[in-house]
Amino acid sequence: MNSAPPNIVPTLVTERLALRAHTVEDFAGSLALWTDPGVTRFIGGRASTEHEVWQRLLRYGGMWGMLGFGYWAITDRADGRFLGEAGLADLKRELLPPLGDVPESGWALLPAAHGRGLGSEAMRAVLDWADRALDRPETCCIIDPVNTASTGLAGKLGYQARHTARLGGNAVTVFYRRRTPQVP
């Protein structure tokens, strides 16, 4: 099976991480991520099935081709190990009120990667890329109000809570971040 990453997905490199296009080989890591109760507790509330994770991987590739942005696989620069996923999406969520066409940022890391600042490092790279590459005035993220770790990270990244919305019958906080102008 050809699993070469699409050349339209830029690779982002930080001190400890490489964010790159997903490949077929990331299925096992993504499945471990999306079936871990510590990860899914605040994101959907249940483990994903193999089918759902496979559909997620396909959706990641499709977003890049159709929207010009999407999700990256987060890997350890030292050994290439899969650590999680982060990026921007337009998921057309059934959210009230809706997000419109504002790119929605998101991140999820395997529990072994928690507590080391890797989510912040990955998302800073994503948002720096977005500020340079996307002509959008802002991005948003939605977070379960009980998820204090993600709420804290959103604040560190410059997101500010704007309102509460309903997603699947649950209240979520919607945060927005204004684009940071880039100096040439």
Rank of each mutant, 00 (worst) to 15 (best):
A133R: 09
D131S: 10
G152E: 13
G115N: 13
V172Q: 07
V126Y: 02
C140R: 11
T173M: 08
S150Q: 04
A165C: 07
R93M: 15
R136W: 01
E94L: 15
Q160M: 03
M123H: 03
V102T: 15
G84S: 07
G87S: 11
S120G: 08
G155E: 05
V146W: 01
T151P: 00
T164H: 02
G80N: 11
D135S: 06
F82C: 04
E138H: 11
D101R: 14
P145A: 08
G84L: 07
A122Q: 08
P111N: 07
A125N: 08
K92F: 07
G155M: 02
A149E: 01
C141H: 03
E104M: 15
G155K: 10
W129L: 06
G169K: 04
Y159D: 00
D144S: 03
G80W: 10
K92H: 14
G106M: 11
G158C: 04
A154G: 01
D90V: 10
D131V: 12
E121W: 08
V146L: 08
G168A: 06
A113W: 12
M123D: 02
R132E: 13
E104A: 14
L91N: 06
G155W: 02
L91H: 11
D144N: 09
P97W: 14
S120P: 00
T173P: 00
L88K: 05
L153G: 07
L167A: 07
T139L: 07
S105G: 15
G84T: 05
R116P: 04
D101E: 15
G100F: 13
H114P: 10
C141G: 07
R124Q: 12
R124T: 12
N147R: 01
L110D: 11
A112E: 15
A130H: 03
G169L: 01
A165E: 00
L99C: 14
V126G: 02
A149M: 01
L127N: 07
D131E: 11
L83S: 10
G115V: 13
G100R: 14
V102D: 14
V172H: 12
D101S: 15
L118M: 06
G169M: 01
R93H: 13
L83W: 06
D79V: 04
T173R: 02
A165Y: 01
Y159K: 05
F82D: 00
D135G: 05
I142E: 03
P137D: 03
P137N: 07
L96C: 12
G80V: 11
R116D: 02
T148D: 13
V146S: 05
A161K: 05
A125F: 04
A112N: 14
A89G: 12
T139I: 00
D128R: 11
A161D: 00
T151R: 10
R132V: 05
M123P: 01
T164R: 08
A122I: 06
V102P: 09
K156P: 03
R124K: 10
A130C: 07
L157R: 01
T151K: 06
A78T: 10
K156D: 03
E138R: 15
G152P: 10
G168E: 06
H163S: 02
G115W: 12
G158R: 02
D131K: 09
